[in-house]
């Protein structure tokens, strides 16, 4: 067993989730689990189907959404040409998978913990909730644009407190921001974790800094290698130094990162 490695694994299944105007926009990709020791919620993997021609060069990073002894589940939204081609995968196809990569979310079973998820940023929180020993201490605040059925939120709602807000019309955004501010204040002495679009995380960061709350954000910068070599995914840490999101992150303390 290895801490991390690169293996060819088979697609166990690929399942569309929910319905939007773009067919197959969201899907769950279940892959064979390589011979790893363990993975921690917040970590990610890189995948690249072995049959991909060179026109799409890089693998693509995805946080681990869920997993068991035999499988790893990723949650994917089609946004660009890479994810669009991943959507064409079939059961039995072979994918190069390297991971588990990066650091992981802080887990403090007895601390009241708020998870702030924006859209597809909900993915790592399913794994977080599954591995948490006291999910009654967890609350998820989930802001989304697509119908709820598009996201892996049901598994979370079954064991933790979940509050969802949809952004359907322009004024919804202000309501989401206001609610996020209230919740960050409420959890100022607890633990707050955030994953979502950059403006969403920036807002959380602003509230957390104002309230003196302990917030961790999970970044998802574009990356080529996932192993710390290409230096394409860097962000600036609290001292203004460039650090790799893939190896120093993807999770950073909100008071130690420039978003």
């Amino acid at each position: 067993m290895a801490l991390r490695n690169c293996r060819n694994v088979k697609v166990l299944d690929i399942t569309p989730v929910g319905e939007t105007q773009r067919p197959g926009e969201f899907f769950e990709l279940r892959l064979e689990r390589p011979d790893w020791d363990a993975w921690k919620p917040g970590q990610f993997v890189m995948i690249r189907p072995v049959d991909w021609p060179m026109d799409i060069l890089w693998g693509r990073p995805f946080s681990i959404c869920s997993g068991d002894s035999r499988s790893v589940t990723l949650f994917v939204q089609k946004v660009g040409r890479g994810t669009a081609r991943l959507a064409e995968l079939k059961k039995g196809d072979t994918v190069a998978l390297w991971g588990p990569l990066g650091n992981s979310f802080a887990v403090e079973p007895d601390t009241p913990t708020l998870m702030l998820a924006g859209g597809i940023g909900i993915a790592p929180f399913r794994g977080y909730v599954e591995q948490h020993s006291h999910p009654e201490n967890l609350k998820l605040f989930f802001a989304h644009r697509m119908p709820l059925g598009c996201y892996p939120h049901e598994g979370i709602a079954a064991v933790a407190d979940v509050e969802c807000m949809a952004e359907e019309k322009p004024e919804d955004l202000q309501a989401i921001i206001a609610r996020m501010g209230e919740l960050v204040n409420e959890y100022r002495d607890g633990l707050i974790l955030c994953c979502g679009p950059t403006p969403f995380m920036k807002t959380a960061q602003r509230f957390a800094l104002e309230a003196g709350a302990r917030l961790y954000v999970s970044l998802e910068n574009r990356m080529a290698c996932g192993v710390g070599a290409c230096l394409g995914c860097v962000c600036k840490d609290g001292e203004g130094h460039h650090v790799q999101v893939c190896t120093k992150g993807p999770i950073f303390r909100a008071d130690n990162v420039e978003l």
Partner: peptide
């Protein structure tokens, strides 16, 4: 070079 990014092995 760049092929190291296709897969790390």
């Amino acid at each position: 070079g760049t092929a190291n990014f296709l897969r790390p092995d």
